[in-house]
Amino acid sequence: MAVFRKDSVPVTVAHASYPAPYTLPAGRLHYRHITEAGGLTQFGAALETLLPGGQSSQMHWEEHEDEFMFMLSGTLTVVEDGVETIVGPGDSCCWRAGTPVGHMLKNHSDAPATYLIVGSRRPENICHYPGLDLIATPDGPTHLDGTPYPKKGDTQ
């Protein structure tokens, strides 16, 4: 058993991990990856804080990974296939694997919003980004036609 006291898991500042032209600004969100600290491998859980004006990710849905979000403080706008819903403390969201509902979180408020995010860790997962020429595969991001995006540091 591992006990982690509040603030004992280090904060990581999110960086832009999407290939150009879909990158998001660094610093929009920070997280404490609780399950990484505990060495768990079958699911991932993180305490995330989305800063004012921030967007959690590009609109996406997962083929093989369930996702769960539980709001702890602040308010967020959940965007699902273009429909916006405001959520606050005590509210939760579930996105079932294989259900093509594109989703993302936005912070339109003037205060940080903190939530617990949990997902399966399926190495075969494929993530779809509706409206973008982007698919995340186990081998890295590709265009819709399967052509890989250049890896960081590669020259074109």
Score class of each variant (00 low, 15 high):
V3T: 14
F4K: 09
F4C: 03
K6H: 13
D7F: 11
V9W: 07
V13A: 08
A16T: 12
A16G: 15
A16L: 02
A16Q: 15
Y18K: 05
Y18M: 07
Y18S: 06
A20P: 10
Y22G: 07
L24Q: 13
P25G: 09
G27T: 08
R28F: 13
L29D: 01
L29H: 03
H30M: 05
H30P: 01
Y31I: 01
H33Y: 14
T35S: 15
G44D: 11
A46I: 02
A46C: 05
L47I: 03
E48S: 13
T49V: 13
T49P: 04
L50E: 08
L50P: 02
L51P: 07
P52D: 14
G53I: 12
Q55K: 12
Q58T: 00
M59R: 08
E63N: 06
E63F: 02
D66P: 00
E67R: 01
E67H: 11
F68R: 00
M69H: 08
F70H: 14
L72M: 15
S73F: 07
G74F: 06
L76Q: 04
V78G: 01
E80C: 06
E80Q: 09
V83D: 13
V83W: 03
E84T: 07
D91V: 00
D91M: 04
S92R: 03
C93N: 10
W95N: 06
W95D: 08
R96F: 10
G98C: 09
G98R: 11
V101Q: 15
H103N: 07
H103M: 06
H103G: 03
M104H: 14
N107R: 03
N107F: 03
N107S: 06
A113M: 02
T114I: 02
Y115R: 00
L116C: 11
G119W: 14
P123N: 13
E124K: 08
H128E: 12
G131E: 11
I135C: 06
A136D: 15
T137C: 06
P138L: 07
P138D: 03
G140E: 06
D145F: 14
G146L: 04
T147V: 06
T147W: 01
P148A: 13
P150D: 04
K152N: 10
K152E: 14
K152S: 13
D154E: 15
T155C: 03
